[in-house]
């Protein structure tokens, strides 16, 4: 419709898409770092790999200001209630990433002390394999998470 003046000045989309687009580029993450994966996490978020260029890694050290929980490292049974509490303190919408095999499945720990994967008590959106994962793997996971956020339903009231 060449004659429609609105088409030249108005973009139409869905509310979900707009919210998804906004949210995926403003992920505020809470790094729950417990083990050696933390070193890889640091190199990923520092200037060499710089996850911030994806709008996906602004660290907040209060769960109340974060919407992405990065669980980086082994979680023990002693620590599980703490992590659960951190998760409960985060506001919706929130996402959880299991960083490395220990957070994913317990890794090579299968004993009295370790939780066999944080999905035993948290809903996990993205699992990152590796012991520890390469930064490229982490970035790949973040991009996949952004894609998921873009396409998911964003309930407004």
């Amino acid at each position: 419709m060449a004659g429609d003046p609105l088409q030249e000045v108005v973009l139409t989309t869905k509310l979900d898409k707009v919210l998804g687009w906004a949210r995926k580029y403003s992920l505020f993450q809470y790094p729950f770092v417990t083990a050696c994966c933390g070193m890889e996490f640091m190199s990923t978020s520092a200037s060499h790999y710089d996850t911030d260029r994806f709008g996906a890694a602004f660290p907040r050290f209060s769960p109340r200001q974060a919407d992405l929980l990065m669980v980086v490292g082994t979680i023990t049974h002693k620590q599980a209630p703490v992590l659960k509490r951190v998760y409960d303190q985060m506001c919706e919408p929130k996402w959880v990433v299991a960083f490395g095999v220990c957070a994913t499945s317990g890794g090579f720990y299968q004993n009295y002390g370790s939780v066999p994967g944080i999905d035993c008590f948290l809903p996990v959106d993205m699992y990152i394999p590796g012991c520890p994962p390469r930064p490229e793997t982490v970035i790949d996971a973040l991009l996949k998470l952004q894609e998921r956020i873009q396409n998911q339903r964003h309930a407004v009231l």
Partner: peptide, 9 residues
């Protein structure tokens, strides 16, 4: 294992 909080899966 002796979990402190309920564990599923």
């Amino acid at each position: 294992m002796q979990p402190l909080i309920p564990m599923r899966n």
